[in-house]
Design a binder for these strands. Structure first.
Lengths: 256, 256
DNA sequence: TCCAGTTTAGACCATTTGGTCAAAATACAT
DNA sequence: ATGTATTTTGACCAAATGGTCTAAACTGGA
């Protein structure tokens, strides 16, 4: 409950590019409904404005955290505003004051998740050693499954349901990002630094396998009795993924 | 809309053990609410009873199909009985006549899906060649993602949400099935027929990668513009998965 | 034709739910 | 203290929804 929403860079290998949501959300202004556009002429001190804004932010964060928890567990349709309000410990009206509607809240939450979610991929660049870059990426993704399972599940549910909201985000920003990274991988291949493989499917496989441990955690626990919070289990998972994926692309003996 | 719910064995490589839902559901009797327990003493001919039962079945199948479509797209909470009724082209009351409640309907649907879903795994047996058995399994799973995406998504959503209904099914039948197959894989390893690998994670990786193409189809389409119904795309997906997974376990040169 | 069992439809209901509104409380500069 | 901008609250509402109940329609056997 008290876990901060924003990603903490320290838990990610070289995840230097993570955006703190504090900063981002400050500048996004469709969060608050209709704060009168006419700014009070010098009504409040700069300091006061900042303090208030921070308080507002923190309250909105609390609401979004609660929303994340419930949306990721029960879906949009399975979660009521009242439930979110109760978990966030605010009145329903107050929640509606901060977010225009349930859909609006949902959108805010999922936009945050998406931002955070696709960020690690940005790390790939051509001058890196592919094996290191990719194994690093796998590790980071698996850490995210361990540390942000709710985010993973919400993203999963949204996409599974057809991503009505996200489809634009997927079609352009994500599509383009992937496109550039595919080029990087192809360059690596051309340079003989790794085996020939379809870069798209390579990425999909990495996403699938790592996210699976968050999204299907119940199933995995039902079968193995363990989850990623178990250090030994985490390590053996990571090693197996290394074995499968890295083996499939490591250039050991030249292939046709 | 007219696609039959039940799995058709012909589309699966050696999927001989698939249960046709016709047969199964006939024997499950908590589907129908309260058909008076006192059987009419010879009231209807055997033939009539059978005909009626079939008609009932087919109507229930129609409802369950509609339910599958909507539940897999909007989730349990996001789907109303009215919507299901409309899609199945029956009145709401009639739907409630065949299924006690929305939850009941949901349970029936998801139980079917689960049955069908875990069946291919049953094929594994120690006397097979591991490479063939596993590549076969991968292919079948990928075919299922192509041919039964709704089933895949519903299963996915249910598990992601914590599988409140399925957790028993997962903890015992699935757990036990996996346990026996893990033994098979371990036997293969001990016999030197494949590389040493954690069988659990191997299975998880196969599930994750294959199901990903159904569950995250929108994302994949947004990025590549293609899906598994595209023959070329299907083949290249399958080949990449072969490359990754089989390479990771194929015993080519002896390892440690 | 009549009857019993079965299926279907429509009217109806209680509850939940998303959302509005006006008023109250709070914070702050003068 | 007073006035203004902002935040919070509780009362209220209309629509949607899950579900019940009764009556009608249909089916097949006598």
């Amino acid at each position: 409950m008290s876990r901060p929403f924003r990603l903490d860079t320290k838990m990610l290998g070289k995840g230097r590019r993570f955006i703190t949501t504090e900063v981002r959300s400050m500048s996004s202004d469709n969060v608050t409904p209709e704060t009168h556009k006419t700014k009070p002429e010098r009504a409040f001190s700069v300091d006061t404005v900042r303090r208030r804004s921070e308080a507002k932010q923190s309250k909105q964060n609390r609401i979004m955290e609660a929303a994340l928890t419930l949306f990721s567990r029960y879906g949009l349709g399975g979660t009521s505003i009242d439930q979110v309000a109760e978990l966030a410990d605010v009145s329903k009206s107050n929640l509606l004051y901060h977010f225009n509607s349930k859909e609006q809240l949902y959108i805010e939450v999922i936009k945050r998740v998406l931002d955070v979610w696709i960020t690690p991929l940005a790390g790939f660049s051509e001058d890196q050693e592919p094996m290191e870059a990719i194994s690093n990426y796998i590790r980071i993704k698996l850490e995210m499954s361990r540390d942000f399972p709710e985010e993973s599940r919400l993203f999963c549910m949204e996409v599974v349901q057809g991503a009505p909201l996200l489809s634009d985000e997927l079609k352009t920003p994500l599509h383009d990002l992937v496109e550039t990274k595919v080029s990087v991988i192809n360059a690596w291949i051309k340079a003989g630094k790794m085996k020939r493989i379809d870069p798209y499917h390579l990425l999909f496989s990495i996403w699938a396998t790592t996210q699976h441990y968050a999204d299907f955690a119940v199933q995995i626990e039902a079968i193995t009795g363990k989850n990623l919070n178990n250090k030994a289990f985490f390590d053996e998972t990571l090693n197996t993924l290394y074995q499968l994926i890295l083996n499939g692309i490591k250039t050991q003996h030249i292939d046709d």
